[in-house]
Amino acid sequence: MEFIISNLLNGLSFGMVLFLIAAGLSIIIGIMGIINLAHGALYMLGAYVGWTIAVHNGLNFWLAVVVGGLAAGLAGLFIERGFLRHLYKQMNEQVLLTFGFVYIITNVCLWIWGGQAKVPFTDPALSGSLNLAGLMYPKTRIVVISIGLALAVGLWWLQDKTRIGAMVRAGMDNKEMIMGLGINLGRISMFVFIFAAFIAGAAGVIGAQLWGVYSYMGLQTLLFALIIIIVGGVGSIQGALTGALLIGVIDAFGKALFPELAMFTMYIVMVVILIVRPSGLLGRKV
């Protein structure tokens, strides 16, 4: 029983970090139709900035989360206003451009912070374990699960229960109609892009509690995010959450039960979903 609960929690915490990465990207693809491959690099940028605040300067961890998010948001603003707004509806060009930004951001991070990886860090109050009915479990992972759940609820509320969310959803369905009604979809898109970049950067600092920070995490996390979106469905917070938790739990049990297949378990899930339900678990049917 301890084995099951422990791996379930491991899967939930891993899945929540994946959700934090994938949620913003899913919205960007859904509302703006932009395949932003630089999303993982923004996650990495946030993580490095957060490390600078929390470890290098010894400041508050939660301040690091906010500043990491702001740094990524600023980079997102630069990418969207400087480049992507000229490439709407040009998906091939978007893919090439944003993949180029992966290398640019990665190399900028290498120049600033060097190639040496930063070990996982957290708030001093969060180190150690909690006793969950006899099961000792790391506080950091419980915090990651809680933040992920809170953000999922918040994003769901924002997308499904607010006026701005209604405009975003309407934009996903029919851009021309929305613009015809006098809504400035370009401005909404810009704010969505910056908001998604902010979440990615903040997620980088939150995820650094488990993974640390290293120079190739831009590509690694992007790969995770795309798998989540494929599995969960494009443009849906619920889909990103479902996909992330499914992948997280399957990865945890896969590593525990079939460690020799650890490299492939999440890809197997993705392939099965693509065959059975190409639009993703909660995505709209193609």
Binding site: F3, P138, A252
Partner: peptide, 9 residues
């Protein structure tokens, strides 16, 4: 990225 599942087993 995550070694925790290995530790559980």
């Amino acid at each position: 990225a995550d070694f925790a599942p290995y530790m559980a087993t």
